[in-house]
Amino acid sequence: MNNALRITAFAAALAATFGTAYGVGRGLDLLVAAEDRPAQRHAGHGAGEEGGGRMGPGHVAGGLQISDGGYTLALETPTIRAGARTEIRFVITDDNGRTVTDYRREHGKELHFILASSDLTEFRHLHPVRAADGTWATPVDLPEAGGYRAFADFTPAAEGAENLTLGADLAVSGMYRPAAPPAPRATAEVDGYRVALDGELRAGRGGELKLTVSRNGRPVTDLQPYLGAYGHLVALRSGDLAYLHVHPNEGGPGPAVSFAATAPSAGTYRLFLDFRHEGKVRTAAFTVRVAPEKGAAEPQESGTGKSGAHAH
């Protein structure tokens, strides 16, 4: 690749990232919230302890802010290269600028780290390692260039601290290939497994999402616990990449994992289900479109991602 093309590709990645940041700055409502649970200040693993939290009007969706509650997510590697295995390093600082080194464990981990491309075609749920000085590090290999969002989901050990999901922009340089969001489908295939999605998200109304896992035409009835649950669902909204980590209803070990959820507004969503079987974690992804409530105008989605049109 000549120098001019490299610069153009990198500029496109930065433009995609800044477009995501613009959508984040708009501060749209949270995309999915668990029904019939106590209200939570933040969506995330803390909310998941009660099966998921509900975000009402006036609350800020998880992952839309780089700083909240006196804590800040500081990426030490805000730019990486596509297709190259790279170590991402970051710290969480408090309101005095000190690096946080003490966390509460949530579902077996001190911190959960999510990476998602602005068009929501790439997704990683990672568990970085923390050094004694509070620096987190995790290797990653992202195949596509463009704008990404990094989410840190954690609870500080400080007295009175609540669960937080902070987000920061990540630029991935390299050859930039615009991609359209995947079309909605009721099934997803991953590593020979078939996951069927039943139920629907409705704007302003509760409903149940049931995801059923099968392999070779037979239901998988021996799903293994992963981080203390039989399934984890991350939902991201197209445009602003608002974040919610939902945990399943009671039940298991398969073949179905269900989630009580609602979409407070119309839009396009990407759902990522992590499930564990035979010692390996796999991720099934779905695109879901939610129609506006009767009599309500459908909102315009904000943000500019790799696809160039956000109708995550």
Rank of each mutant, 00 (worst) to 15 (best):
K210Y: 06
P248H: 02
G174H: 00
V195T: 05
A183H: 06
N163D: 11
L241D: 01
A186T: 15
Y230D: 11
A168Q: 00
T165V: 15
V220A: 04
R194S: 15
Y193L: 11
A186E: 15
N249L: 15
L197R: 12
S173D: 14
A235V: 04
E162G: 12
G239D: 03
N163S: 07
L164M: 04
A256Y: 00
V190C: 12
F259R: 00
P225A: 13
N216P: 10
R202I: 07
E189V: 12
G204R: 01
R218K: 14
D198V: 02
Y226A: 10
G199E: 05
D240L: 01
A235W: 05
P181Q: 09
V220H: 08
K210T: 14
Q224S: 08
S238M: 08
M175Y: 12
V246F: 01
A168W: 00
L223N: 02
A171Y: 03
G167P: 03
G174F: 00
G251Q: 06
A179W: 11
A161W: 01
N163A: 06
L236I: 05
L166D: 01
L197K: 08
A188W: 06
H245L: 04
E208I: 13
L166P: 01
L233S: 04
P181S: 04
G206Q: 03
R205F: 11
R215I: 11
A235Q: 11
N216H: 15
Y230A: 04
M175H: 09
F154S: 00
G192R: 12
D169N: 14
R149H: 13
A229E: 10
Q224N: 15
G167R: 00
A161M: 06
P156L: 07
G231N: 02
F151H: 00
A157V: 05
G254V: 10
L201I: 09
A256L: 07
S238Q: 09
D169K: 05
G252K: 00
G217D: 14
L233R: 02
G174C: 08
P255N: 05
G228S: 06
V213E: 10
Y230K: 05
G239K: 03
Q224C: 10
R218F: 15
G199C: 13
H247L: 03
